[in-house]
Design a protein around this nucleic acid. Structure first.
Lengths: 96, 96
DNA sequence: GTTACTTACGATAACCGTAAGAATC
DNA sequence: GATTCTTACGGTTATCGTAAGTAAC
């Protein structure tokens, strides 16, 4: 399975301001399903929205979280580290 | 020192969609300084922005976080509970 | 008067969905 | 062909700053 891109185009549009909880939820669900398309469906949003959301997140973090392939996505090592933290944060938020 | 409102007007504008990290930072800083004005200054934003931000946060949570007075603000009991979680979340995010 | 928080309004900027693009199989 | 993720465009929506409002002192 060959990778298509390492860093998705450095993001051409407006610069993001900060990480938000939706981005965390998007990344977590994408990791769980190994697919942006399925994650978008589960979260009742659009594939394009989720793709952009994660792209902005990666831009904010300065590292890529997923490796993309035509079969879906897989977390990078840095991504797996980040996802652990993200899950913990979302869990705390939900207990509020 | 008399309180002015218990719940700030239930928020008249658009309903918020979710909590975000800026709201957490705003609340934490406001609690640290006991003042929206000082917190806004420290965070390089406007008092009105911070006031609205926290108002939306309280609306999302369904409870008030601060008691307002003409001398500044003070966390409610529910606010203190929430702030503990918020600090923990921000701390984790910053270690990323 | 001063100082604190809030609210209304308007301009700017971000967001999201549609639809087309690109890459892999 | 099919599937995946990405990108451009446009309309809607949210955000933020200025300035005025309200309350307490």
């Amino acid at each position: 399975m060959m990778e298509r891109r390492s860093l998705p185009g450095q993001f051409k549009g407006a610069r993001p301001l900060g990480v938000d909880f939706d981005q965390l939820r998007h990344a977590i669900t994408a990791a769980d399903y190994g697919s942006f398309r399925q994650a978008a469906e589960v979260l009742s949003t659009k594939q394009s929205t989720l793709s952009r959301s994660i792209q902005l997140l990666e831009c904010s973090l300065g590292t890529s979280i997923f490796d993309r392939s035509s079969g879906g996505v897989r977390a990078t090592p840095a991504g797996r580290y980040f996802l652990r933290i993200a899950r913990s944060i979302i869990e705390q938020l939900c207990d509020t």
